[in-house]
Amino acid sequence: MTTRIDRRFAALKDEGRAALVTFTMAGDPDYHCALAILKALPQAGADVIELGMPFTDPMADGPAIQAAGLRALHAGQNMEKTLGLVREFRAGDAATPLVLMGYYNPIYIYGVERFLADAKSAGVDGLIVVDLPPEEDAELCLPALKAGLNFIRLATPTTDDKRLPVVLKNTSGFVYYVSITGITGAAAPDTSKVAEAVKRIKRHTELPVCVGFGVRTAEHARAIAQGADGIVVGSALVEAVRKSLGADGRHTPATVAAVADLVRTLAAGVRGARHSAVRAARARNP
């Protein structure tokens, strides 16, 4: 069964370039502005969209994404509205894969079966749930796969060769490589180490490998995109949201543009990696 995610990565492979995966928070800074941001992302160069489901206690997130979640919750965001955002986005875009990312409790409380049915019908393609390791696959991963959703797993620097097969077993869509041991938005990763790790993961799987945590500039994106199938940018985008807000904490006319402009710059970085990679390949095989 091929999914929207599979098709998108296959198309990018044909193009010979890596994907730009963007993370923004559902409902940040409010529902309507978040929807406008979502709609602007594909045109600005996002190839895959990750949409955060806000949670009060995000234990793997740094201050930027913590604050984005709280802004969304204070603006009244909840799971129904998050699925509503997806539905509205999907009405105008049938091609861009959309992945929901977050923590398990809001899904558990919404009800796993109900969540999977509603997410599927809203147009969600995959799930990333930070606090569900393979040891808890029976909770959501297996039902999600059965419902036809991709379940994207995080692999980390602590996931060694012995454990990788356990992590990859029920993973589909792509593998999200967490480039550092740490929380989102922390120190920048060492690009050579990341390249090595991606190679290591690729020895275990045919799935595309995207790299995230700590990627914030176009240069960074370009460097990492040389060896990976995609790069994920999150904290830098939600920071762009925060910096664009008015003194009252509400969105301004500049908010959507602030995010779209940064995505455009990052997309140029990712696409630049293709050119240098292609140039390098041509130099090797003239």
Partner: peptide, 19 residues
């Protein structure tokens, strides 16, 4: 698996699982 009935378990990020 660390369960007391339906309670308990290991709901942590992958980084921590090996530890």
């Amino acid at each position: 698996h660390g369960h007391f009935g339906i309670y308990g378990g290991r709901f942590v990020a992958e980084t921590l699982m090996p530890l």
